[in-house]
Design a protein around this nucleic acid. Structure first.
Lengths: 372, 372
DNA sequence: TTGTACGCGTTATCAA
DNA sequence: TTGATAACGCGTACAA
């Protein structure tokens, strides 16, 4: 590299017997080629009015010729402190974000706000990270200006670390944090409406399908002990909504069978429903904490040669797109809006605030009057 | 900052009359606090066996106390040249990635490979970027180790720039690039199978619903001129597959009505179907280039009081989840596998290769014997 | 096992 | 309008 001279960018250097990919083209190369300082080249990209239009043109044309594709993002970020991207943090495995219709909708909303604000979006999976206590947790490798924490357990170490770090934070659904903006719904009231809707239809024998309450992979009856130690507040709130509403109607919630499933999927919902149906006093109404679980439950009910809603009513939670095609009665929550609001709050650096969005009861063919 | 001394991380500095958010905690702060060099702290994170376990423990505990959350990603990347993330580049608006079931599935596959290789995933929308020719295009702000180009037009400036840059690249679907690995399907053969399937059912009068062929927002009959200048090779291939198969069966493809729609959506598919149905010789079979379009078309057919498949057969392309619930016959392509393969090739830095995945004809209730 | 010195590519400050 | 110089935070030979 002693005499650079005119050099085409598409060349690879052969050095010391092995092919070495060419050195990255930098600001400096462009500057050297033109005989100007590298500051001037930088200005050409960032402050167009700090130099003559003619020079700017020449700079861009040389850049093109040399294969310079603009300031290196990492270097730029190191110098400015800004990343131009936000991180979406969640505790499931990465692919899950594209499997669960509810998250996909939230992400759609986040993406809308990102587009409007010219920000990129990085998806970061943290995992449960409760084991490996010794390994220092990192918030992914991603360089971002702030994080959206999506429905994470309060004891998730990444969530804790995110708070320690001095970056902007927004929480969706959970956990509730001091000094951190929150976007969510009133889970307790919404679940209560679901239960009330079935009560109004005359149902008295209920079964509940709960989502996971702890970090184990437990699947089985929700014991009182487990109920007292629910890690996710949304789950706790929904359960509380179901129970208090039933109790107000004179039903002892402790005698309502409740099956906890370890993963939010149709299969798990079907399994849970089979368990509830096998109870001595078969329920006439099933309250499920998610639509996916509810849809699985519907399938299990039909497989058991029972009719919906004549024999059994099923009520979901979420109103994902599949709920409509399945004819599932459910609680609609504004997933997209959640994402829009969260990203907006984050990107606009709004002051701390709680945004509680409205939910809505949606009745379809999966619920009907209690039998007999 | 003359005498740092013991300083709590949760303090904010008040300087020159205004609140200034505290300086970021760095490796150096942790090192200074312990009286060791910053290299040692760095080693604690990167090379655990380069220092005593006891010291490592002390370092982590001081880090926790000071609120140090690990090496700054930007600085780390600048120093190592690695980002720990890959970029997924596509030309629609960012939210579209969560709207289109096909992309969502591809992303699920990408995410699976990312998880396995401990890489993050950044979504980057480039837009059509054909206007604004003067503004220097950038590949988003994201700092990534490589890009997956998803179904982009060959003349997309970001795609061109990505090639100039010296970063690893993988293309899904299009464009075919020299020296760049490719993951996709045989669109021509697959489309041909769709057409053949309908021919075998006795159909002779066809209508085609084409996806957009150019960068305008044109919606209308696909003129011969437009057909000769299709920007997206997948579209061109599918059309060629339809046409050549029909021609081989003695049908003049130039006389087969073909309606081009500008956006891949159910609504646009419905509108296109209405146009085809209004033709003097109403088709008995509609070939749609995507399931979303096909599902919209099915709705339009039913709205026109025509029966599926007795009066009209509809054949889709993609086999998205909704195709099954809609009973749509279609071409199944392995979306998830596409993503898995592309990310795997990228992360493993495999040598250039073409991966052509298998497709499959899936017949459901939307197709049947030709009427009469 | 620990520390010194330098480089990574850019932006920002300030003087020319 | 342009250019020299100093950060930005970290990784890593190399030396101690």
């Amino acid at each position: 590299m002693k005499s650079p001279g005119p050099k085409l960018a598409s060349r690879a250097l052969i050095t010391q017997g092995r092919v070495q990919s060419r050195r990255k083209v930098t600001l400096k190369d462009v500057a050297a080629r033109l005989g100007v300082s590298h500051t001037t080249v930088s200005n050409a990209y960032i402050r167009p009015n700090q130099l003559s239009a003619a020079l700017r043109e020449r700079i861009f044309s040389v850049a093109l010729e040399l294969g310079y594709t603009g300031p290196d993002p990492a270097a730029k970020q190191l110098a400015t402190g800004r990343a131009g991207a936000i991180g979406f943090l969640f505790s499931e495995e990465l692919p899950y974000a594209f499997t669960d219709p509810a998250i996909v909708s939230v992400l759609q909303g986040v993406a809308e706000s990102c587009t409007r604000r010219a920000s990129d979006l990085a998806l970061i999976s943290t995992g449960d990270n409760l084991r490996d206590r010794e390994a220092p947790v990192s918030l992914g490798h991603a360089a971002v200006d702030g994080y959206i924490l999506y429905s994470m357990a309060p004891d998730n170490r990444c969530a804790i670390m995110a708070q320690q770090q001095n970056v902007p934070l927004i929480v969706i659904d959970q956990p509730r944090l001091d000094n951190v903006s929150f976007v969510g719904i009133d889970d307790c009231a919404a679940a209560g409406q679901a239960a009330q809707n079935l009560l109004d239809l005359g149902h008295r024998r209920f079964g509940i399908l709960s989502l996971k309450t702890a970090h184990d992979d437990y699947s089985g009856p929700l014991t009182p002990q487990r109920r007292a130690n629910i890690a996710h507040s949304t789950i706790a709130m929904r359960l509380e909504g179901y129970r208090s509403t039933l109790q107000a109607a004179g039903i002892d919630p402790d005698r309502v069978p409740c099956w906890e499933i370890s993963v939010n999927s149709e299969e798990a919902g079907a399994e849970g429903a089979r368990q509830l149906l096998a109870a001595p006093e078969r329920p006439t109404a099933i309250l499920a904490m998610s639509d996916r679980v509810a849809i699985g439950a519907m399938q299990a009910v039909r497989d058991a040669k029972l009719r919906i809603p004549e024999d059994i009513s099923v009520f979901g939670f979420d109103d994902i797109p599949a709920a409509e095609t399945s004819g599932l009665s459910t609680i609609r929550q504004p997933h997209i809006q959640k994402g829009i609001e969260a990203a907006r709050l984050l990107l606009l650096k709004e002051a701390r605030q709680n945004v509680i969005l409205d939910t809505q009861v949606v009745t379809r063919a999966s619920t009907g009057p209690a039998p007999k």
